[in-house]
Design a protein around this nucleic acid. Structure first.
Lengths: 343, 343
DNA sequence: CTGTTAGCGCCTTCAC
DNA sequence: GTGAAGGCGCTAACAG
């Protein structure tokens, strides 16, 4: 408490002096080395606390060659991602685990090739000990590039980049989730079931589309290509896509949307047409974010454990960082259907 | 390109050697010092690029005593904040500016006193050059504590902590925005206008409530205390609050909600009652986040420039960090009413 | 304009 | 168990 507004930074040197021991011993105590006597330990600890000692991060990092920093990388060429609560929830989960291990989380956005190079040198410069990736589009190569630098890496969902094959992934069974959603529509008695898919350059989108296709086939349906419209995971995109779907086939009476935001947009398009949900058109979403409760009617949707996704990614990095063990190659989380009013 | 998967970290020393100059000169070139000859500069730059040299952050930080790191601090005792897109949007704006100045953004959540102490020592340890705060509840003292450490600080919205008086703030005129919203309800002909406020321990919530009160008074209305219900900025909270409002006064025909998420919940409660919006009850929200487009009907709401809020906060820190100038004490952004279907 | 000389604060062999 | 000494990679005077 001595130096509250303290202008004196207190170094290991001063702590050692105050404790009447050498710098080496003080260091041993502070890093938790076992080879120190009780007495010395007590004196050092007392001195450190009375001087409000805080180890200098840079100095430590310089010699340990670790930054105790983990990156949360958002690969977002189109910046739509941010308005999706999905993103914040993953971040929250990741932060929780990372903080519990006294690591710091740096937030990085990669949109341009310049950003990519900058991130790579950032990592090469020793700023980073590991990185987790979210919202991977197309053949994003940053996971592979950082992996090549020797950093532990993990991705939320597969990457379409061939170079990323074999890197740790945390995801849910998108195809299965989509299948459950589609089956709900079938069992409800929908005659013509369409789908609004996510961007075609994202693995998860494609898996959900496949899930829809498979479930349709399993139900003996042979969907027309007109019943598939590609969206962009936004409310507006979902609205537009639904308009298209309705224009192409006014008899559509069931729709599986690849995320809740698009489902919310679809709901609005349906209402604009004077149609009612779920009687005229039943709608199922994916994610189960808060907006699913705010729509009219509330959304029937495929729940995925978003926060846990973030936790598991962080856990994966911590495992290979702290424990030094290899990270699990693929963690797959479970989804389940939450039935509300829209289907 | 030589050492792509390079095991050789390349130091300033090696660059200098390769360029045939001293370490000092190499350093001057790399830090952009003017006092270097063309020739030397070229040789150093060539050597650096051919060796894929990346300066070691820790070493530099150790001597410059700057970390080039800015913290984005979320003071969130109740962790509801994350599901609000508001949060992600501020983060996005802040990141943009921070990245443009080659600073890194570390993401910090403060929920417990332990977190507070940890953040303080993190800052004291030289990890941080500045910090911006978001979602300030009650008398959160971290802004003041970091300020006491000598770090530039900025807050999104006022803090109720007396110690934070005088610290830089970026916000909108909440009272005015609430007033515009309320007036809309009055002009629409609503007879009994209620409000769902935000948490009472947040300055912005109280300002919006005041704005409602003032506008009511200006319109010659003397609202009953029953017409004020405190919410928590979540969809569920808004739903509950609306139920209460309707129970207490079924004649309520206008409601100002302190944010869009609560407005979305209110919409649902109204629909559950078999009432229609805006004919039976008109609703105005605050924020203008994407969910405002997803509700049925879409929300009439007070737009605030959320991303700009983040940009301005970052700008404030950059100003006092890079330019060394004092940050603007109070930046106030503008709001405006966006009329959609709900009022 | 450039090289030389000192550390920045800390961890870590290496002897004792 | 403990101290002495060296050096991580870089910048910043200080001379020339």
């Amino acid at each position: 408490m001595v130096s509250s507004g303290g202008r004196v930074p207190a170094t290991l040197e001063s702590v050692a002096a105050a404790a009447g021991v050498s710098r080496a011993t003080a260091s041993r105590v502070l890093t938790g080395s076992p080879r120190v006597s009780e007495a010395a330990r007590d004196k050092v600890l007392a001195a450190a606390s009375s001087l409000a000692y805080v180890p200098n991060a840079a100095a430590r990092s310089l010699v340990t060659r670790r930054s105790d920093t983990v990156a949360f990388v958002v690969c977002e060429p189109e910046e739509k991602f941010f308005s999706d609560p999905f993103f914040a929830t993953v971040l929250k989960g990741a932060h929780r685990i990372v903080a519990a291990h006294s690591l710091q989380l740096v937030f990085v956005v990669v949109a341009t090739d310049e950003d990519r190079d900058q991130l790579e040198r950032f990592a090469a410069g020793g700023h980073l000990d590991a990185a987790m990736f979210v919202s991977l589009h197309g053949s994003e190569d940053m996971p592979a590039r950082l992996d090549a630098l020797g950093l532990p890496v993990v991705m939320a969902g597969r990457s379409l980049d061939p170079g990323a094959a074999g890197l740790p992934v945390v995801d849910v069974d998108n195809a299965q989730g989509a299948g459950v959603a589609t089956r709900r529509l079938v069992e409800r008695g929908c005659r013509r079931i369409g789908t609004i898919s996510g961007p075609t350059d994202m693995a998860g989108s494609m898996d959900r589309l496949d899930g829809w296709r498979e479930a349709m086939a399993a139900a003996g349906r042979t969907p027309h290509e007109d019943d598939v419209v590609t969206g962009d995971y936004t409310v507006e995109g979902g609205h537009e896509a639904m308009v298209t779907l309705l224009d192409r086939g006014p008899e559509v009476d069931g729709v599986f949307c690849a995320n809740d935001l698009m489902a919310a947009g679809a709901l609005r398009a349906i209402a604009d047409r004077g149609l009612s949900v779920p009687d005229d058109v039943a709608v199922v979403g994916f994610d189960d974010i808060p907006v699913a409760l705010a729509t009219q009617p509330p959304l029937t949707t495929v729940h995925q454990p978003i926060e846990e996704l973030g936790r598991r990614m962080a856990q994966s990095l911590v495992t290979s960082l702290v424990a030094g063990e290899p990270a699990p190659q693929h963690v797959r989380l479970h989804t389940h259907l939450v039935v509300r009013g829209s289907a």
